[in-house]
């Protein structure tokens, strides 16, 4: 029997976000909707990364005055996940900016946001 812990639920939520994101990127025809699907995928990955480091009763991995140095390593959540998430947010914003810029240029050229029309007849 699978225990419905907070970590398990957040993994499920992240899997759902990732699947919605991938499906949206692959099957939606509108370029802006594809970009929104990409941001959902990125959020799903971020949630998965944070959930990896979480455990029940854990404390934030910052050593503050008054915290027992001996107990800190046992109680602190893994810092790697949130560390990667911070970088992933920056990368996600940069990627979104590039995607939006390219979509704008292609919209000006073709007058449509439909990927099927924009990408049609791409090879000379």
């Amino acid at each position: 029997m699978i225990e419905l812990t907070l970590q398990f639920l957040s993994f499920m939520a992240s899997a759902l976000l990732i699947l919605i994101g991938i499906a949206g990127m692959l099957f939606l025809d509108n370029l802006i909707k594809k970009i929104i699907a990409f941001t959902l995928l990125s959020d799903g990955v971020n949630l998965a990364l944070v959930s990896l480091g979480y455990f029940e009763g854990g404390v934030v991995a910052i050593l503050t005055p008054g915290t027992s140095v001996a107990e800190f390593p046992q109680n602190a959540v893994l810092i790697f996940g949130p560390g990667i998430v911070l970088t992933n947010i920056v990368i996600g914003v940069s990627t979104t900016a590039v995607l939006v810029a390219l979509t704008m240029v292609l919209y000006k050229r073709y007058g449509t946001l439909k990927a099927s029309k924009v990408l049609k007849g791409e090879r000379k």
């Binding site: 998965a48 990896l52 996940g81 990667i84 995607l99 240029v105």
Partner: peptide, 28 residues
Amino acid sequence: SQKAALKYTFFSALSGAGMAIALAMILG
């Protein structure tokens, strides 16, 4: 070129997400 760049960037999102998860797994 712009279409090629757009397609490549979309796929970079999938690949980058995969690499981030792989990285987190090895770190974990």
